[in-house]
Simulated assay, not measured.
Amino acid sequence: MNNSNIYTLGTKLLSKTFSVNSICLGSGADEKGNNDAMNLLEGHLETFNFPIAFKHVSGKNYCDLMGSGWGILYLISDRMKHLLEKERLTGWKCFPIEIVDKNGKKIQEVYHGFSIVGRSGSIIYKKSDVIEKQLVPNGPLSKYYKGIHPEMETWDGSDFFLPKNHWGTMVTQKAKDIMVKNKLTNIMLQNLAEIEVGVNTVLDY
């Protein structure tokens, strides 16, 4: 499998979409350098007290994929969970959450925390093309890597996965096609071949 058959998973960040922030997750790092959101994303659930609480902050339109207030961590609807189970897509698991309104009253819509347990090797930027872009008229040229390439020799074959030392969720063509066909809402999928990353933002490859 090459990067033209892999996509990043994210939300559309629409203003009318129901959105939440976490109430109890901490930003401090543990002995591995991970904060709470990273551990939940990676499926390291042993030290948490469930359910994890989230509070409604804006929007009213419920969707299938919801941001959590942490850029890397998502919540999924019951509909999305059942679809992934029905289609036997791999590389994910759920954890219990609850959502409350601004007055602390529990909201009855059913959502689940979304952990990604599939894995691949690291992103290999040496495989990317280097392009130059001028971001403003008469401004300097900036260098970007065009296309990102996870090391797939150690990919475990999962439909949802995280590259080593990377917290952006990636999905296979199969998973992308199923989500699009079933019209899951608030989902943004970007092909890895089209992603651009500033060269000066990559510390080591």
Rank of each mutant, 00 (worst) to 15 (best):
K106Q: 12
L184R: 04
S4K: 07
G198V: 08
M38Y: 14
D204I: 04
L83V: 11
D159N: 08
Y7R: 05
R119D: 07
Q190G: 12
N186C: 13
T11L: 03
F54Y: 07
K143D: 06
M188A: 07
S142R: 12
C94N: 10
M152H: 13
K126M: 11
F48W: 01
I23V: 13
M1W: 08
V197T: 00
T154P: 04
M179E: 13
S142W: 06
I124K: 11
L75F: 15
N103T: 15
V110I: 10
V110H: 12
S120M: 04
M1Q: 13
E46I: 00
T172E: 09
N2S: 10
L40S: 03
T11H: 14
K93T: 00
D30L: 01
P140M: 14
G157I: 03
D156R: 05
K81W: 08
L189H: 10
N61F: 11
T172S: 09
Y144R: 01
I6S: 05
S22F: 12
S58I: 12
K183D: 06
K93Q: 14
N35T: 15
E132L: 11
S19F: 03
I76Y: 08
H149G: 04
D78Q: 12
G104F: 11
C63L: 08
H149A: 03
G118I: 10
V57F: 03
K174R: 13
E98K: 14
E151Q: 09
N191V: 07
H166Y: 13
N165R: 12
Y111C: 14
L9I: 02
G118A: 15
K133F: 02
R79S: 05
P163W: 00
G157D: 03
L192A: 04
E194W: 08
I187K: 05
F114H: 06
E151N: 07
Y74R: 11
G147L: 13
F48Q: 00
K60M: 08
G43M: 12
N165P: 11
